[in-house]
Amino acid sequence: MRALWLVLLILIALPARAGEIVGALSQNRVALTASFSGSEILIFGAIRRTAEDLLAEAAAEAAGGVDYDVIIVIEGPRQPIAVWRKDRRAGIWMNVDSVTMGSVPSFYAVATSGPLHEILSPEADAAYRISARQAIRAEQVGDGSPQALLFAEALLRIRERSAHYMALDRFVHLDRDILFRANVRLPANLTEGAYTTRMYLVQDGEVVNQFRTAIFVRKDGLERWLHELAYEQPLLYGILALAIAIIAGWGASALFRLIRQQ
């Protein structure tokens, strides 16, 4: 009777492909200060399984089953942007037309334990919007013209070159199918806001489980104070800028005159 129950349990567990992903970050706060030059974030976690899962896995493995893969997505705050295209007019290269996109991530990194297209089916990619191309899909469609597609491709190309969009294949290290870790380098020019971090447990091309957390990026110290002053008290800020210019300009020349006189 007990053995029957166990078989039943395995049968229930199999199609559901159980297994839970739990993750954490080495830091969930990034402070943008004057000396900020990018930040390395360690993302780590484990794949949790119950005894039944393990049993099911053993059975699957015996039948030539597949291993787990992990995909980590870090997405920066979304912003409205305009993509401009230059063309030659009267011998001069100038912006001629643009496409506005309501909301695209300011930063997007996809770290995987294997090549993305091999470990994830296109359908799952579309459903969970994992690759950068999928993340801007809503914008990419635009008015449906091939023109809009070109602009979206240009966005991906430009942001990949500036390391704001990154495809980090094989950056996730999986240890005995239980522990995983990845190092992701955030660039120096980050936008303030919450960077959602999604971790996907993938098996046989499908997402089995996911875990979400966030990294909070904000300006700090003097940078924060200046930025707030500039936006909340612009007149005062302008006067401060002038005062610095006047004192520095006049002070320095007075100082040099003093040095030269001696």
Partner: peptide
């Protein structure tokens, strides 16, 4: 002009100006 740009566009960067001025006076 500096004040007007600061008020209408929030585009004066004091930090940038400071380092340029520092290098400039020397």
């Amino acid at each position: 002009t500096t004040i007007m740009h600061a008020v209408t566009g929030h585009s004066v960067d004091v930090m940038l100006a400071f380092f340029l001025i520092l290098g400039g006076v020397i």
